[in-house]
């Protein structure tokens, strides 16, 4: 349950960007989270709503999109998404190697864009 601290950090970045661009109103914030980043979207939405209530950010939309896990095989360098995609790790579909794949994507947690007015 670290979504509250994630939401706090998110708000600090939003305020920083709004000041940088001289904008007063946040319409939308788009967050990209990797499947491995252990963010529960419902919990983050709730935290965002609670923290922005009664502030100038109240009513802004938080849009989240999950990035699937992409692995690179340690042996044959093939890049693949585990099957089923809900699994975090899986044998390489090319050579069968089970161990030591590198995570190419799936750990990210970042703001993709802001819509400001």
């Amino acid at each position: 349950m670290h979504e509250l601290s994630i939401a706090q950090s998110l708000l600090a970045l939003i305020e920083d960007e709004m000041a940088k661009h001289g904008k007063e109103k946040l319409i939308t914030v788009k967050v990209r989270h990797g499947r491995l980043s252990s963010v529960v979207p419902e919990a983050l939405s709730m935290a965002f709503e609670v923290l922005t209530a009664d502030s100038r950010l109240a009513g802004a939309a938080l849009v989240m999109e999950e990035t699937p896990v992409l692995l690179r095989c340690r042996d044959c360098s093939r890049e693949f998404t585990p099957d089923p995609p809900t699994a975090a790790f899986a044998p390489c579909p090319g050579c069968g190697q089970e161990l030591g794949h590198t995570v190419v994507s799936g750990r990210e947690l970042y703001i993709e864009y802001l819509e400001l007015e």
């Binding site: 661009h21 970042y110 703001i111 400001l116």
Partner: peptide, 14 residues
């Protein structure tokens, strides 16, 4: 106005 940001949300801690 849409502004691309691409900032790690946990950058302050990082």
């Amino acid at each position: 106005m849409q502004i691309p940001v691409v900032r790690n949300i946990l950058e302050a801690n990082a």
